[in-house]
C-alpha cells in the first residue's frame, strides 16, 4: 500500500504539471488566435458532451505550422539556432578537451581541488556569468581597452551584440558540462595502454591520436550533447550578448509569447523545437547506455 503511495504521489504531480501542460501546448499549436481570454479558439468544453468534443477536434488544424514554414523569420531562427549551437559546441570541445586532459594527468592529490574549481562556476548564477561578459566585451569594455593599450587595434572592436559574443557566452557558461564527462573518461583510462603504444614506437602525439582520443570518445559525445541540447533553446545568452540580428529560437519563442501574445504560433514554435531536439536526445541516451555497458 505504501509502495503504491510512493509511486502515485510523484506520478500524479508529473502528470498534472508536466504531461497535461505539454498536451495543452500541442493542442493550442493546432488552434487559432482569438481575441478572448485565453487568446485562442476552440476551447474544450467538457460539459457539452461528445458532440462538443467532436466539434472541438474538427476545429483543430495545422495552419500554424503552415504559417511557420511560410514565414522566413522562423526558418531562419531555427537554422541560425542550429548553426550557433553546432559552432559553439565545437568551440567548447576545442577549449574543454585540453583542460579535461590536463586535469586527468595532474597529480592525484590535486584532482579534487581542480574538480571543485570546475564545479564552482556551475553553482554560481548563470545570469551573472553571462552578465559578467557584458562589461568586458562592450565597445568601451575591458577587452577593447586592453587591446587598444596593446596597440593591436586602433579603434574598438564591435563584439558585444554580435554572434561572436554569443559564442563566447555559450563556451563560457557551458564549459563545465564539456569538461566533466571528458575528464571522467580520461581519468579512468588505463595508463599502461599509452606506455605500451610508446614502447611499440608510437610518438606521443600519435599515441594520443590512436589511443587516448578514441578511448575518450564516450566522454566527448556526452559533453557535446550536454552543450548542444541546452544551447539550441537558449534564451539568456542571445538576449544579453547577441544583437538584433542574432536570431535564436528560444528568444523568438519568448518574445512571440510574452510580447506579441500569439499563443498558437508560439506553441507551434515550441512543438517544432521539441521535434528537432528529439534526435540529439535519443542519440545522447544511446551514448550513455553504451558507456554504461562498457563499464560493466
Amino acid at each position: 500500500m505504501r509502495k503504491a503511495l510512493v509511486i502515485a504521489v510523484p506520478y500524479l504531480w508529473l502528470l498534472a504539471l508536466f504531461l497535461v501542460p505539454f498536451l495543452m501546448v500541442l493542442k493550442i499549436s493546432l488552434s487559432d488566435v482569438a481575441l478572448s481570454i485565453p487568446p485562442y479558439t476552440p476551447q474544450l468544453d467538457l460539459t457539452g458532451g461528445l458532440a462538443a468534443i467532436g466539434e472541438f477536434f474538427s476545429q483543430l488544424d495545422l495552419e500554424n505550422f503552415v504559417f511557420l514554414t511560410s514565414d522566413d523569420l522562423y526558418i531562419k531562427a531555427y537554422a541560425s539556432s542550429l548553426t550557433i549551437a553546432v559552432i559553439s559546441t565545437f568551440l567548447t570541445l576545442l577549449i574543454g578537451y585540453p583542460i579535461a586532459y590536463a586535469m586527468a594527468r595532474a597529480a592525484p592529490e590535486w584532482r579534487p581541488t581542480l574538480l571543485m574549481l570546475i564545479i564552482l562556476p556551475f553553482w554560481t548564477s548563470f545570469l551573472i556569468r553571462v552578465y559578467a561578459w557584458m562589461g568586458i566585451l562592450s565597445n568601451t569594455g575591458l577587452l577593447n581597452q586592453f587591446l587598444l593599450w596593446l596597440g593591436v587595434i586602433s579603434e574598438p572592436l564591435e563584439i558585444l551584440n554580435t554572434n561572436i559574443a554569443v559564442y563566447i557566452g555559450v563556451v563560457y557558461t557551458y564549459l563545465p558540462f564539456m569538461i566533466l564527462p571528458i575528464y571522467a573518461t580520461l581519468e579512468r583510462m588505463d595508463g599502461s595502454l599509452l606506455e605500451a603504444a610508446e614502447d611499440l614506437g608510437c610518438s606521443r602525439l600519435s599515441a594520443f591520436w590512436l589511443v587516448t582520443l578514441p578511448l575518450s570518445k564516450t566522454g566527448i559525445v556526452a559533453g557535446c550533447f550536454l552543450v548542444f541540447i541546452p544551447t539550441l533553446g537558449e534564451f539568456v545568452i542571445p538576449s544579453l550578448l547577441g544583437g538584433s540580428q542574432t536570431l535564436m529560437i528560444g528568444k523568438v519563442l519568448f518574445e512571440e509569447f510574452l510580447n506579441n501574445r500569439d499563443w498558437p504560433v508560439a506553441s507551434a514554435v515550441a512543438v517544432i523545437l521539441l521535434l528537432i531536439l528529439i534526435i540529439p536526445i535519443i542519440l545522447f541516451q544511446r551514448n550513455e547506455q553504451r558507456a554504461r555497458e562498457l563499464d560493466q
Partner: peptide, 28 residues
Amino acid sequence: TLFSGMVYAPLVMPEVITGLSLLLLFIG
C-alpha cells in the same frame, strides 16, 4: 516507462517550453 520518461524529461526540456506549457496550464 511513462513515469521514468516524465521524471527525466525536464532535464533536457528547453526552459522556454517548460515555462510556456506551465503558464498555459495555470491560465487554463
